[in-house]
């Protein structure tokens, strides 16, 4: 391999930090969820790269498990975001009704 594995791990460290910045600095819930995905993906990249160094499958299997779990987290997160936006919409119309009545 001409690209040493530490380059891959270094890349994953950079991606992880970018994701952390997104979680801490952005206020939009959707973007925060996307940033968490970046962080989990950075972890996956590190796992997969190390799995190559050790020539084992453990890291890859862990990465696949993480994919399934990350998808579950996204489902729940988006579900809450959708329910919350319905709720906010209703709150706004409540104010509207008060103004008219």
């Amino acid at each position: 391999m001409s690209v040493a594995v530490d380059w891959y791990v270094g890349l994953s460290a950079v991606l992880f930090s970018i994701g952390a910045a997104g979680v801490l600095l952005r206020r939009n819930a959707l973007v925060v969820l996307l940033s968490i995905e970046i962080m989990l993906n950075a972890g996956n990249l590190a796992l997969v790269a190390f799995s190559r160094t050790h020539a084992q499958h453990d890291g890859q299997v862990f990465a696949i498990v993480v994919m399934a779990i990350a998808a579950s987290e996204v489902v729940v997160g988006l579900g809450i975001v959708v329910a919350l936006s319905h709720m906010r919409r209703e709150l706004d119309t409540d104010e509207l009704a008060e103004l008219h009545g």
Binding site: V23, L24, L25, R26, R27, N28, A29, L30, V32, V81, L84, S85, R88, R89
Partner: peptide, 10 residues
């Protein structure tokens, strides 16, 4: 257009 939902992590 209701994409801006404050997450308030910080």
């Amino acid at each position: 257009d209701r994409r801006e939902l404050a997450a308030d992590a910080v």
